[in-house]
């Protein structure tokens, strides 16, 4: 069993000590970061600090040193984002800080994504993502998309203000396994239920699993609307998508 002192990067050690509270998460992260090479720890640390220029530089350096793109993504970028997700869930950081981390992750993914897509790695599943009709907020959805892509999903982004017909057309065109809908407003969240009803009317409901999320959305509301899954945040979204993909 790995110890905290097995992690070379001091900043990562401090993050685990200071911010992680659940024993299983502490153990998992110590095991993870003790296993990964110091260069990946450095990428994760820069991502957690929201330093996009540093992540950009370290990612390029790692690739130049012959480290596989998949390893950089899993052991550097996603590992760092895992700690960011926990801090956000526990309200230790808020959206501006998460956006800065997402910007840093994107800086790294700009190099990683083209390599992975050329390598022909099969995605876990295809996911359609959109903010519902009448809602133009997309920060949460974009964070989910970034985490899903980083976790091996293929994502089709339908953007904001997505009508029921747009969802249905995209289901028919892209044939995803999962549809994800988000809403930030209490005034627009009922449109998720309307979209699910429209899927039933269009006879496409049984073709997809539906997951929903957004600040005002709750598990109860998701259940009432007939969704298959609900995620409280971007981290949970990935877990829900993995569960739905294997269902």
């Amino acid at each position: 069993m790995a110890e905290l002192s097995d992690i070379a990067n001091e900043f990562i050690r401090q993050e685990i000590e200071e911010y992680l509270e659940r024993p299983t998460e502490i153990e998992r992260n110590i095991e993870l970061f003790a296993r990964v090479r110091p260069a990946m720890q450095d990428i994760a640390a820069a991502l957690i600090e929201g330093e996009d220029d540093v992540v950009d530089r370290l990612t390029q350096q790692a690739l130049a040193d012959g480290i596989e793109a998949l390893e950089i993504m899993d052991d550097g970028l996603i590992a760092g984002m895992g700690i960011v997700g926990i801090k956000f869930r526990e309200a230790m950081i808020f959206v501006p800080e998460v956006l800065a981390c997402a910007r840093a992750m994107k800086a790294g993914m700009n190099y990683i994504e083209p390599i992975l897509s050329d390598s022909g790695v099969e995605p876990i599943a295809k996911v359609l993502m959109g903010t519902v009709k009448g809602d133009l907020h997309d920060i949460g959805k974009n964070l989910c998309i970034m985490m899903l892509r980083g976790s091996g999903f293929e994502v089709v982004d339908l953007g904001v203000d997505t009508s029921d017909d747009d969802f249905i057309d995209a289901i028919e065109e892209h044939q995803p396994g999962i549809v994800g809908m988000s809403a930030l407003l209490t005034t627009t969240m009922p449109n998720m239920g309307k979209a699910i009803e429209a899927f039933i009317d269009a006879d496409v409901r049984d073709d997809v699993m539906v997951m929903v999320g957004g600040a005002p959305v709750t598990q109860d509301f998701a259940d009432d609307m007939g969704a298959d899954g609900y995620g409280k945040d971007a981290l949970a979204c990935v877990e829900v998508a993995k569960k739905l993909a294997s269902a």
């Binding site: 009709k133 009448g134 133009l136 907020h137 997309d138 904001v160 203000d161 407003l185 005034t187 627009t188």
Partner: peptide, 15 residues
């Protein structure tokens, strides 16, 4: 602006 219809709220195109 997106003034929408009767059953939807008008919104600003923040993008």
């Amino acid at each position: 602006m997106q003034w929408e219809q009767k059953d939807n709220w008008p919104t600003v195109r923040m993008s």
